[in-house]
């Protein structure tokens, strides 16, 4: 089989892969920052806190990422005068911004759900021990509940990161030249679909399993302190 087209395109595919990784990491980081307060709000007993968190998580987990992406990228156009007035329209004109914003909102909702489960799974006794020495509120969350919950959430979070990595391929639909975007452009010109899509798929595979390998190592290192098994292992489908 003639693979010249694949070798020729490899540098550009890899360039696309860099954008894929960049979008993934930026969204993951921003999503995690957003997920922590959302998860805590979701677990609050106050209606004003848990209801918005619940609604947000339900909407972003209950609708396809593609719709969310189109809502932000195309849908924002419907509010152009308003966004212009607020001085943010120049942001929404950028596909990159819309992609990162949508992916952030999306992964934050899934991550918040993972964190919620992990926070619930923090042993009651350890929380009581913290209360018994006078810890409460934010201090209790910051020092005892969250550090413990993060460790419990790690396997499920690794899965989420992998799903997000793959979900970034949708940004090619709003014209970004990520790995999928580059492959689609080359296919459109060369009419060699299967070779290029297989090549792109293989690059995704390599990235995915390198990432999984690294994070399993990290998990092992971080879990040196415990013998019990973490919650929500591999295999739980949480795609878009």
């Amino acid at each position: 089989m003639d693979l010249a087209i694949v070798w020729e395109s490899l540098p550009r595919l890899l360039e696309g892969a860099v954008l894929t990784l960049e979008i993934t990491f930026v969204s993951l980081l921003a999503g995690l920052c957003l997920a922590v307060p959302v998860a805590i709000a979701r677990l609050s007993h106050r209606r004003i806190l848990w209801m918005p968190a619940y609604g947000y998580m339900l909407y972003f987990r209950g609708t396809p990422l593609l719709v969310q992406l189109f809502l932000v990228y195309y849908g924002s156009g419907q509010f152009q005068p308003l966004l212009d007035q607020a001085g943010v329209w120049f942001l929404f004109r950028e596909a990159y911004f819309c992609a990162v914003l949508t992916l952030t909102l999306n992964t934050a909702a899934y991550t918040a759900e993972i964190l919620r489960g992990a926070i619930i799974a923090v042993p009651r006794g350890e929380i009581e021990a913290a209360r018994s020495v006078g810890m409460s509120g934010l201090l209790l969350y910051r020092r005892i509940i969250l550090p413990k919950a993060f460790r419990l959430a790690l396997p499920a979070y690794t899965n989420e990161a992998v799903f997000l990595l793959q979900a970034t391929s949708l940004v090619s639909i709003i014209t970004l030249l990520d790995l999928t975007g580059v492959a689609r452009i080359i296919v459109a010109r060369s009419f060699e679909p299967y070779k290029l899509y297989i090549a792109a798929g293989l690059i995704y595979l390599v990235i995915t399993y390198t990432f999984v390998l690294v994070s399993r190592r990290l998990e092992l290192r971080l879990s040196g302190h415990r013998r019990e098994q973490p919650v929500g292992g591999v295999g739980s489908a949480s795609g878009r």
Binding site: S169, A183, V187, Y194, Y197, G201
Partner: peptide, 20 residues
């Protein structure tokens, strides 16, 4: 393979790739 490759790539592969 399925878990390591994005759905979009697989859809494009099946729809455009397989016939070709």
């Amino acid at each position: 393979v399925i878990r390591g490759v994005p759905e979009l790539i697989l859809i494009l592969l099946v729809y455009y790739g397989v016939p070709t």
